[in-house]
């Protein structure tokens, strides 16, 4: 087994690991207990494994763990602090954008990056759709997801 020492931050916490180079970031994050990272396809098509790497949404199933060295990683678990869910998470709840919940954490991370990037700018539904097109959902028909993101940009 070939290993490599990497150091990265996950949800604000610095972690040093001697990581098996064969592992995806998905494998490593799940082993760290961050099971909000879901595997829905393993080929970067469904987005259920989305985390933010230096604030950019990435499919962690198609990302070697060794590449995380020096990076800042955020997952859905970390978006909720002191028992308070984030604004994006609350918007998903309020809009009814949560059903089976399997795609939800990945979507939440894509939306979080989107809202941080476009806050205060005029954004239409087409742009919301384009920037969420790497996440699949089968329960909602996406309608309430678009509504949730819109509501985050309103104020």
């Amino acid at each position: 087994m070939i290993t490599k020492e990497i150091e990265f931050t996950v949800n604000g916490q610095l972690i040093t690991l001697d990581v098996d180079i064969r592992k995806s970031l998905l494998d490593v994050l799940r082993e760290e207990g961050l099971t909000s990272i879901k595997q829905g396809c393993g080929v970067g098509e469904c987005g259920a494994c989305t985390a933010l790497i230096d604030d950019i949404p990435m499919d962690t199933c198609m990302y070697l763990a060794v590449w995380a060295d020096g990076k800042d990683i955020r997952t859905s678990e970390g978006e909720s602090r002191d028992g308070q869910v984030s604004k994006v998470q609350q918007a998903y709840i309020d809009a009814g954008a949560v059903q089976c919940g399997y795609c939800t954490p990945g979507f939440i991370m894509t939306s979080t990056a989107f809202v941080e990037k476009y806050k205060g700018q005029k954004v239409d539904r087409d742009l919301i759709r384009k920037e969420h097109s790497g996440n699949l959902c089968r329960c909602t028909g996406y309608e309430t997801i678009v509504c949730a993101v819109e509501s985050c940009l309103k104020d």
Partner: peptide
């Protein structure tokens, strides 16, 4: 009434555990 789903917070935080978890 439009009551909030009971499992909403578990799911948005990713803490809800599915079989693979």
């Amino acid at each position: 009434k439009p009551i909030e789903r009971l499992d909403a917070v578990a799911k948005v935080t990713g803490k809800a555990r599915y079989t693979e978890d």
